[in-house]
Design a protein around this nucleic acid. Structure first.
Length: 281
DNA sequence: AGGGGACAGCGTCAGGTGAT
DNA sequence: ATCACCTGACGCTGTCCCCT
């Protein structure tokens, strides 16, 4: 819809850069067809769809625009972009994984053993806490995938981390056991636990594919994969929408700049006209 | 108050693309 | 060929605003 109009109404030079050779040919074909729209009424639907579907990502487009227009920020690459989902964490060392609790808090699990917990509301490093896992050796195979957080039966928050461990939010802010750092003030505390009881609703632990035998296990594995896929796609869709909004903003600012330039050029033209053609009374 | 249209945001599906 | 990722499209929901 939006992209269709964008592609069919005009071809921006930047978009041209992303067209592969045969793609350009096809676009040219469409352009000709558009010109002779009165004579040839309909463009082949499939051809059109094929062309339209081959679009560059918003990141690519915006980065091109950014290099074109100074002052427009570039969309960062994948790694920093992931960290960018949490402004509090982005200033820290790049973690390997970032997870968000159901209350909006972020947990970053670094390459080493540190777990950082941050509140999106707090600014900078202030909202960050570091936990150290003492038993974070090599995770057992098949159990390294994190699943999303949920409320457990006892009202605490749980989210699973690589290594078949569980990060559990304490209801009281008492001093934490020795295997974790204590939090202070109003901040909740978290514990690293082994998942002792049955998994909370909505949370499925990763299992080693080799351990699957019965049809029920296979079905559970399929469900788990589906949940994981949906979760990833959910996040991807959010990110895509964010990029799209950024892209539209970028285009709007570009329009504003070009309008100003255009106005200046018209004024300059008028001035030159006045100079070159003296008034004849 | 409440009905309804416009709009934004979200989750999901389907299909394309690029990397391996 | 396979996989992960990206994004358009669709349907749903919540919010805001206007009108009756």
């Amino acid at each position: 819809m939006w992209w269709h109009q964008h592609n069919l109404c005009f071809r921006h030079p930047i978009e041209e850069d992303y067209s592969s050779g045969d793609q350009e040919e096809k676009v040219a074909t469409i352009a000709e067809a558009d010109e002779s729209a009165e004579s040839e009424s309909v463009i082949d639907f499939h051809k059109r769809r094929e062309i339209l579907s081959r679009r560059p990502s918003y990141r690519k487009i915006l980065n091109e625009l950014s290099s074109d227009v100074p002052g427009v920020p570039k969309i960062e690459e994948e790694k920093s972009e992931e960290a960018g989902t949490s402004p509090n964490i982005s200033a820290m060392a790049v973690p390997t994984s970032i997870y968000q609790t159901s209350t909006g808090q972020y947990i970053a699990i670094a390459q080493g053993e540190a777990i950082q917990i941050s509140n999106p509301g707090s600014d900078g490093v202030q909202g960050l806490q570091a936990l150290t896992m003492t038993n974070s050796g090599a995770p057992p195979p098949g159990a390294t995938i994190i699943q999303y957080a949920t409320q457990s039966a006892d009202g605490t928050q749980q989210f699973f981390v690589p290594g078949s461990q569980v990060v559990v939010q304490d209801e009281e802010t008492e001093l934490a056991p020795s295997h974790m750092a204590a939090t202070t003030g109003d901040m909740p505390t978290y514990q690293i636990r082994a998942p002792t009881t049955a998994l909370p609703q909505g949370v499925v632990m990763a299992a080693s594919p080799g351990s699957l035998h019965s049809p029920q296990q296979l079905a559970e594995e399929a469900t788990r994969k589906r949940e994981l896929r949906l979760m990833k796609n959910r996040e991807a869709a959010k990110e895509c929408r964010r990029r799209k909004k950024e892209y539209v903003k970028c285009l709007e600012s570009r329009v504003a700049v070009l309008e100003v330039q255009n106005k200046k050029l018209i004024e300059e033209l008028e001035t030159l006209k006045d100079i070159c053609s003296p008034k004849t009374d």
